[in-house]
Amino acid sequence: MTRFQLIAIRLLLLALVLTAWQVLPRNGIINPLLLPPFSDVLSTLWEILGRPQVHEAILVTSAEVIVAFVIAVPLGAAIGVLIAEHDYAGQIFKPLLFYVFSVPKSIFLPMFILIMGIGFQQKVAYAAFSTLFIVIMSATAAVESVRTDHVLVARSFGATRWQILTRVYVPSMMPILLETLRISMIFNFTGVMIAEMYASRTGLGYLIANWGENFQLPQLFAGVILLAVVAIAFNEAVRVLEHRVSAWRT
């Protein structure tokens, strides 16, 4: 199947879903109060995009996502590398982290609110917290993916510890680290959304939760589309980076 055909089929599927979204509520097969027709949602989307309140929400949410990401990823990576490289640290912390990792992070959200209130800091702190563990686990896996024979080769040519780190560890770990970036972005974004929807005065999550509570379904669906676009944009940004750095992989 050619690339063109694949794209054509995908677009066709999308058109099919959107047509159903348009036609079914219009004809009353689905209650339009629960699923407003696609054209209504689109016009609502256009309308809310003009509201300053929505502009502010996009900015706040994006800022929270970026700041939380910039905190969680380097911190998690550093902890992960430390655990993987230190036998003792690994033996002590690995099982503990593994157990904490399996606990849903959202149950800690009320504590964040009690400690930090419901502002920007709390959103960032909670999102970073909910992302940290996946980064730690992945960074540990990345270190373990470094081949011992590669380290041996570098040592045989007289590499210093720093050279082994920068010229063997970093490039070896890069594929897993880049994948981690993308997965962490998903965790991170989810963390911000949950925090905003749970208790907040601004942000896209807050708006969507609010519209839902007030039964404003065209606004709710418009908000979902808007949020999907923002989330995909963040994800694609990370993917472009990933693609550039790992050109050598098949």
């Binding site: 041996l152 080769v153 570098a154 040519f157 007289g158 010229r167 490039p171 050598w248």
Partner: peptide, 27 residues
């Protein structure tokens, strides 16, 4: 001493030429 290992142990992120240059790059 130069060493040649069992698995060629080339760095997959470097080209053949960059792999050969690796020891020189270290210095």
């Amino acid at each position: 001493v130069g060493v040649v290992f069992q698995e060629a142990s080339l760095f997959p992120w470097l080209t053949a030429l960059d792999n050969i240059e690796f020891p020189l790059a270290l210095r």
